[in-house]
């Protein structure tokens, strides 16, 4: 069974941004949360709700469909895998994603693609995020 990231309990989110620091650190070797695949935002200022934007692990991912070079291939369980070598930085994947889960790293000229590694869930101090088993 494959696993994908689930954001089931965001009402418990305290907005500490640990998930973003860990994702940006481990996946992009950067201290800036701008490089994180998962984004936590406040909806309507800090007094508003915390909401997440992260890859939904689509079974039929629009980002892969629009990729002209085949740099995005299907991942087991949903979502995509990025082949950096094949990517030319056209940003079609970025605009194709309805939920805006694909961000773009200007420094590297590459999209920021979540590969459901689960680090963010492991470091979430309040169990808002989890890794759920899904059929391959």
């Amino acid at each position: 069974m494959a696993k994908v990231l689930s954001t089931g309990d965001m009402s418990k989110c305290i907005g500490c941004f640990t998930c973003m620091f860990v994702c940006a650190g481990a996946n992009r070797q950067d201290h800036s949360i701008q490089k994180s695949c998962i984004k936590i935002r406040t909806y309507g200022g800090i007094s508003g709700k915390f909401v997440e934007t992260v890859c939904h692990a689509c079974r039929e991912p629009a980002c892969a469909e629009v990729c002209p070079t085949g740099a995005l291939t299907l991942r087991k369980g949903g979502g995509v895998i990025l082949s950096k070598k094949k990517c030319m930085g056209c940003r079609r994947c970025e605009s194709s994603c309805l939920i805006k889960a694909v961000d773009f790293d200007e420094d590297l000229n590459l999209p920021i693609i979540c590969h459901h590694c689960g680090l963010c869930a492991r470091y979430c101090p309040h169990e808002c995020l989890s890794m759920d088993e899904v059929p391959d």
Binding site: I14, G15, C16, F17, T18, I46, F50, P125, H126
Partner: peptide
């Protein structure tokens, strides 16, 4: 409860 950025504790009680 909410937190300052980078604090996993979240002591701000609303």
């Amino acid at each position: 409860k909410v937190a300052c950025t980078g604090c996993p504790v979240g002591c701000i009680h609303i």
